[in-house]
Design a binder for these strands. Sequence first.
DNA 1: ACGATATGTTACCCACGGGTAAGAAAAAGT
DNA 2: ACTTTTTCTTACCCGTGGGTAACATATCGT
Lengths: 245, 245
Amino acid sequence: MDSAPPAPPSSPSPWLPFESRRRARDEKREAVLRAAVQLFLEQGYHRATLNEVADRLNITKPALYNYFRGKDEILFECWSMGAELVDGVITEINAGGGSGLAKLRKLVHAYATLMATDFGASLVRFDLRDLAERNAGVARAAKRRIDATFRRYITAGIADGSIRPCDPKLAAFAIAGSLNWIGHWYRREGKLSPTAIADEFTVRLTDGLAAEVRLQMTKKTPRAPQGRNSGRKATGKKRTGGETG
Amino acid sequence: MDSAPPAPPSSPSPWLPFESRRRARDEKREAVLRAAVQLFLEQGYHRATLNEVADRLNITKPALYNYFRGKDEILFECWSMGAELVDGVITEINAGGGSGLAKLRKLVHAYATLMATDFGASLVRFDLRDLAERNAGVARAAKRRIDATFRRYITAGIADGSIRPCDPKLAAFAIAGSLNWIGHWYRREGKLSPTAIADEFTVRLTDGLAAEVRLQMTKKTPRAPQGRNSGRKATGKKRTGGETG
DNA sequence: ACGATATGTTACCCACGGGTAAGAAAAAGT
DNA sequence: ACTTTTTCTTACCCGTGGGTAACATATCGT
């Protein structure tokens, strides 16, 4: 709809139409997911109806069944999109080098950023009990992998001396808890930009574990030692649309 | 049902029967809430039916309407129970003295402990959008109060020097996120006792903020410098029933 | 003992929303 | 131009579960 295809003037190859047709289908499928995840997040899975999803796409409910077997499968696919994003992040970090602490910091930063996206938030805001048993199993496995990664980086950090000895399990719980919660309070319209949040959380969640001196400056120099932070206005007082709970 | 009344042999006063009758009613009301909160947590609000709630109490669905106006009101009352617990904790801490950091630590500890209870968990596992608008407003207000308390303690701590300068808002988000998440992963059958969790989180979530040296010992002395920790077996490897996500 | 009230039961209603059947409309293939 | 396949619509089904009405029964005050 919004992104016009590259418009191949007239495809001579009989393959291209086939490919483009498959692409069109995949694009529609994804459009459904985008509309669905948005609505599910807005209203909650059970309050959102397939009719509403369809309405947003200017189609009717049964048309959705050309792309998905049912509501719960749509939910699962939304969830999967988020999981794939995380998996991508993890394999990328694994590919690179660095101490356990460095890897943990990368993961925290990327994960925090993801939590500010629709598909990322769906990872923590959707209830796996709404999935068919088969899909729920897949999702649980993915969660375990993510959890294991947190713990592995921490364990590695302890081994290589970059992280002070601690219980990796509880440390992972604490860190992941803070991060997951972002998915619940973050609002696009709020004052905090995703990168600002990610920068801050990277420091706050890991400097308590670091073996060496703290990253953060003790004086009033605002914050975020890393680079890139978009336009933000320091510690504004007004409502930003979300509480801790 | 399970707790026989004190059995006043024959109450001469006409007041007592009245009182005892009201008590009986309140007890039943609370029994409904206990059954409901348990079921709502187990299955999720939407999947749980009033018939199931009634079944667990050996009554029938319409009987519930003697005590509540509807399903959403039951949900709200469950939520309120949790909120009252937190409010109690807060007023108690406010009554006592101590630095901002000390108060924050007390709050973290108590809040973490609460998250391991049914009514406490309901604070973070129920969706306020399921409430009638009026009740949702009350709940939002309560959440704001709790959030404000976290920030107030942090701000006070910065002012009195017990906490290093930082953004109280983000610090509160980070801490509350970790704590709230407990309500999602804690399992009664797991190996981690509520007090063990609370002890650990109290240290881990606040020592990054403390102005003075860390509480936690750097060496391998297991953990939990505070007193009381129930029977626990160190860092067991096996599944404890819950991942970070 | 007796009427009033509170409490509970059986039987029912019905809105809601996921899912399906049958066929129109649009595209693709030939 | 024709058939075939894909895509989408209209019309419908129906299980589910919150909520209600009418009636039964226990409880209490007097």
